[in-house]
Structures are given as structure tokens and as C-alpha cells.
């Protein structure tokens, strides 16, 4: 048993060495001014989110293509400014040449962005942005409102929407405040109001990032609304939970289900008919463009990429070609 203590001490020592090593590498890089390999820091929201995993793949590819060092950082789990701000501070202490920041809060992270800019570091925003975009090189995001509208179209198509009939749908969210959730719901509601007035959005509920809780919400809705026509599961977590709830109650295909995020797992379920459709974002592309813009900007003082770029979402359904599936399914390394 003494051994295990030593093993732990060993682990601790290893961790310390690893920390030192990363510290050294970054300082070595800043010191090596002659050979000019750029350091691009990338601070994202939460490592555990597949969305950011997919983004990482794009970021790594682009960093390699551009011949720059990528410093990928972010909280392992929490999408929150409390955990993100210290991470940004640590990254800035390493004096990178550029920073791609996904601010978890537009106001709270403003100071961090300003600090970076004051140090002469080029800053880009991806997915979400800080309040003041004037000194940000570029802001690249998926169009979440458009995604919500596309979800409404897919649901309406599946339930065979006819004017004059009444339909019931529900929406599973992660939380009341997640900005992407809010934008998608807005887009969804706007499209329903404009094109499908017979669809009534009966209820929304929150999964708190836990797919099992998402399943619980759907279970209870299915009991409360025996004639439910459709479910809009607004993110990957809700998509997983809703799909499994329908499977357990043997209602797949009977209740239309439009999910979000092209996890490989869920893409397979489009083919098997559990999902009516999936709305896919393009996180890898967002990361690629952001890094490209930063490198150009650092080298030449300007960039060919627009100051604000909106990349539309993509609807994956049973008719999607294999080529598109390969393109839009999130991959991890």
C-alpha cells in the first residue's frame, strides 16, 4: 500500500514535469525570434463538448497547413467565464502572436480581449463574440438562427404540415441562457410563426447538459401530450436523450425528431429513421477560417477574410449524399 502512495507522488511529479515542459516550449518559442514560427493560441469553451472537439480537428489541420504552432486551451467541462478568464490570462502570459477566443460571456471576456490587443496580440472570435468587435480581426460563426429555421422546415415536412390543421411540438434545451440555444430557438419560433402557424410550441425544458435528463423531459412530454407531433432537440445532448426516449417507448418514426449537431452516433440514426433530420454546424470550418485570418493578419497587417463571417448550417436527412455526410459529420482525432 505504501507503493500506491509513491505511485501517486510519481504521477504528481510527472504532471509537474509536463507543466514545466509546456511552459518551457512556449517560452522557447517566444525566444526563438529568428525562425519565426508563429504561435496561435485557441481558447475554446468546454473540452467535453463534441462541438469543440470537431473544431479542434479543423484548427489542427489549418495550423499544420499554415506552419504555425497551435496552443489549444479551455476548461475540460465548464462553459463559463469564471473558468475561462484565468485560462486566457495564463495563455497571454506565454505571449502568443495570435489568439482565437470563443468568449463564454460577451461582457466578462471583453477585458481579456482588450488586454491581448493592448499587448499587440491579434484576436479573432469564433462562434460567440465579445461586445466590442471593432478591434477584433474577424468574427466567424455558424448561423444558429438559420439552423433553428431549418429545423422548423424539416419538422413541418415530416409531419406533413397542412394549413388549417393543428400540430403540437416541444423543444428540448440545455439551459435558458446558452446563447446558441437562444438563437436557435429564436430562429425556430420565427420560422414557425411565419410559415407554419398551425404548429404550437407546447413546452420547453432544460437538460443541464445531461442526456439522461433530456430523455426524462421527453418521457414526461410523451405522457402529457399523447398526440405530440414533433420534437426539436436543440443540441447534441438533447438529440441523444430524445432519440433514446423515443426508442424505449417504441415511438421512433411516429414522433418527428429534429436534432442538432452531427455526432457520428446521431448521423447513423438519421439513416435508421430515428431522426427526421439533424442540423449540422461546421465547427472545423469556423476554426480554419479564424486561424487563416489571423496568420494573414499577423504577416501582412490585413486579411482577405471578412470582418464578420456567418457560415450557414446544413440539414442532414435521409436524402443527404455520402459526400455531404462525410463533410458534415463531426470527427474527432
Amino acid at each position: 500500500m505504501k507503493r500506491s502512495v509513491r505511485a501517486f507522488a510519481g504521477l504528481g511529479a510527472l504532471a509537474a514535469v509536463a507543466l514545466l515542459a509546456t511552459g518551457c516550449s512556449s517560452s522557447a518559442n517566444t525566444a526563438a525570434t529568428t525562425d519565426k514560427k508563429l504561435n496561435i493560441a485557441f481558447v475554446m469553451g468546454a473540452e467535453s463538448d463534441p462541438f469543440f472537439q470537431a473544431m479542434k480537428v479543423g484548427a489542427e489541420e489549418e495550423a499544420k497547413a499554415q506552419g504555425v504552432n497551435l496552443i489549444w486551451q479551455g476548461d475540460p467541462k465548464n462553459y463559463s467565464p469564471e473558468t475561462q478568464i484565468p485560462i486566457v490570462d495564463t495563455v497571454l502570459a506565454g505571449k502568443p502572436d495570435g489568439l482565437v477566443l470563443i468568449p463564454t460571456d460577451p461582457t466578462a471576456l471583453q477585458a481579456s480581449a482588450d488586454k491581448a490587443i493592448a499587448q499587440g496580440i491579434a484576436v479573432a472570435n469564433v462562434d460567440t463574440h465579445v461586445n466590442d468587435l471593432s478591434k477584433i480581426v474577424t468574427f466567424i460563426t455558424g448561423d444558429n438562427k438559420d439552423g433553428g429555421a431549418k429545423a422548423a422546415d424539416a419538422l413541418a415536412a415530416k409531419i406533413g404540415y397542412k394549413d388549417g390543421s393543428k400540430y403540437q411540438v416541444v423543444v428540448g434545451l440545455t439551459s435558458a441562457t446558452a446563447t446558441t440555444n437562444v438563437a436557435r430557438l429564436e430562429g425556430f419560433k420565427a420560422q414557425v410563426a411565419a410559415k407554419y402557424p398551425g404548429i404550437e410550441i407546447k413546452d420547453v425544458a432544460y437538460s443541464e447538459s445531461n442526456p439522461e435528463k433530456a430523455a426524462t423531459n421527453v418521457n414526461n412530454w410523451l405522457t402529457k401530450y399523447p398526440n405530440l407531433n414533433g420534437i426539436f432537440a436543440i443540441d447534441g445532448t438533447n438529440a441523444s436523450g430524445a432519440a433514446s426516449a423515443l426508442e424505449a417507448k417504441k415511438l421512433t418514426g411516429k414522433v418527428a425528431l429534429v436534432g442538432y449537431d452531427a455526432y457520428p452516433d446521431n448521423v447513423a440514426k438519421v439513416k435508421s429513421g430515428i431522426f427526421t433530420a439533424l442540423i449540422a454546424q461546421v465547427p472545423a470550418e469556423e476554426a480554419r477560417q479564424a486561424i487563416k485570418a489571423l496568420v494573414e493578419y499577423i504577416k501582412t497587417g490585413k486579411t482577405s477574410i471578412a470582418h464578420e463571417v456567418v457560415i450557414p448550417n446544413f440539414t442532414i436527412d435521409a436524402n443527404t449524399t455520402d459526400a455531404d455526410l462525410a463533410k458534415y459529420t463531426y470527427v474527432a482525432n
Binding site: E47, S48, D49, P50, F52, Q53, P76, K77, P211, G236, S240, S244, E247, A248, K249, K250, Y263, P264, D265, N266, A268, Y330, A332, N333
Partner: peptide
């Protein structure tokens, strides 16, 4: 708790891993 969470993210790249199942067992 933190370590287990981190490991599970590393293990799965943060995405759900699906496998064999019989949903009748849970219904």
C-alpha cells in the same frame, strides 16, 4: 470526479459512443 470526467472526455472525444442495446430492457 474531475479526473474521471477528464478521462471520459479523452476516451470519447466528448461524443457519445453507441453500442449494442435492447431498448425493451428499459421500457
Amino acid at each position: 470526479m474531475g479526473a474521471a470526467l477528464g478521462l471520459s472526455v479523452i476516451f470519447s472525444s466528448g461524443m457519445p459512443i453507441s453500442g449494442p442495446n435492447d431498448f425493451n430492457l428499459i421500457g
